[in-house]
Design a protein around this nucleic acid. Structure first.
Lengths: 114, 114
DNA sequence: CCGGATCCCAGACGATACTG
DNA sequence: CAGTATCGTCTGGGATCCGG
């Protein structure tokens, strides 16, 4: 753990791990990334997978993930509109971490029973 | 990625990875955990390591980490007061993840230059 | 089908002062 | 030394309506 001072989005961070958290913290981001790690999805597919989201929030989170280069937004010039979302190379690279987050969480909850 | 519906702190989560994020998201938590992964620390040591923190915030984050069972607060009955903080077994188990978060962040920032 | 624009609130976070 | 207590701010996220 290098504790390397860095600037990102005009904020100062003390460790690069904080940058990663900055990228994936957002109400629906891990879920979006997890679903996209399984398959390419259209907007309304994601909506069905995450019924708790509002359109606005889903859009917002997708835009941020896109801006950060973690996902790709593919627009087809057809009517009715068709938009697909998929992981970028960078996005793919954090899939192992998502799994670890998942495993730890499951493990943690198990221990709470005991 | 199981997408396993769980309850935690009276909130509903769709995947256990969200629980892990819930545990470590907080302005100073990853830093605290990272520092404690290197050595046991006293309160004012942590304060010196993280000069940006206020006492209130540091206390708050430490209390939450303790309540969640990730760190241990060891109070010595002496004057002046002496309190030590260290990782619990559960806390130790997320150290590998902290490193991954760190590595990804560093990697990510590198790519931004290119 | 996909998303933008507005309004609003709780809760996270901060500043400052005080204490056993 | 290691905290409380109090108050103030700010922003992430929700609700709702509008538009191409």
């Amino acid at each position: 753990m290098p504790f390397q001072k860095v600037q990102f989005r005009d904020k100062a961070f003390t460790c690069t791990s904080e940058v990663t958290l900055e990228l994936i913290s957002g109400k629906w981001k891990v879920l979006i990334l997890s679903y996209l790690s399984k398959k390419v999805c259209r907007f309304n597919e994601l909506q069905k997978l995450m019924p708790e989201t509002t359109q606005k929030m889903l859009t917002l989170q997708l835009r941020e993930l896109e801006k950060d280069g973690l996902i790709i937004r593919k627009v087809y010039a057809v009517a009715p509109p068709k938009v697909e979302y998929l992981l970028s190379d960078l996005g793919e690279r954090l899939v192992p971490m998502l799994k670890q987050l998942c495993n730890f969480g499951a493990d943690y909850l198990d221990r709470l029973e005991a």
